[in-house]
Amino acid sequence: MTINSIGLTTLVLYLLATLHYLLFLVTKKDKIAIVGLYASRIGFLTNLLFIGTLIAKKGSVVLFTPKGVFSLLSISTISVFLYFSTKYKLHISGIFLTPWAALFSGIAVFSKGIPKDMFPVGVIGTTHIFSALTGYAAFMFSTIVSLLYLILDKQLKKKKFSIFYHKIPSLKLLENIIYNSITFGFTFITVSMFTGAIWSAKLFGTYWSWDPKQVLTLITWFIYAAILHLYISGKWNGKKLCYLSVVGTVLVMINFVGVNLIFKGVHSF
């Protein structure tokens, strides 16, 4: 099938990027990291094409199938990575991000694309799912930068210096990136919650239905709101901010994977 071969190309490109970033970690050669960056960039384009052809062929309802969700998740992961790595020259984050993009696009290629229920999707539904997944990717990125922060902090404390010491610009910059990506993700999750409520009102006549995913998302939302509040007020920063960001992302993961496996409802696919 031609659509799946586009997906496969994307997967291969992301795997190529992953491989090169891992090689970069071992060999420390910048040129290898550049190959990884280009593979990610081209992968982003084929991923976009993949989603585009999927929607063109099956309609936007395809976004609510595992195939759609995971290809969206892989593209949002890679776009968040490309955005921040270009803006802050933080290519080393590719070591941690490209494997995830590869994993997601792999699941997308090998999973079903047949919609379970036929919801009328429309603009609101598409916005809902797009913003939710972009938010997840941004949170994931903040966690990965948090890991980089913890690594650099540890090396400064233990006085042991590896490639991370040489390639990470500074703790303060990482902190700014964590804050920025959390704000970014928080904005998108908020948008996703509002559009979800509006959509729900349209479909089922109620804004809120105590769906497990809704509840968990609300909890996550409050946690991130607290993180932002604590950071802006200057009470929590540095390592504490990093730990909180990791906790937030773990919750998001549970929310995303767990809810799907355990509960049956409008959010499982």
Partner: peptide
């Protein structure tokens, strides 16, 4: 090291 910690 100062730059690694404070950036600017």
């Amino acid at each position: 090291l100062a730059k690694k910690i404070f950036c600017q």
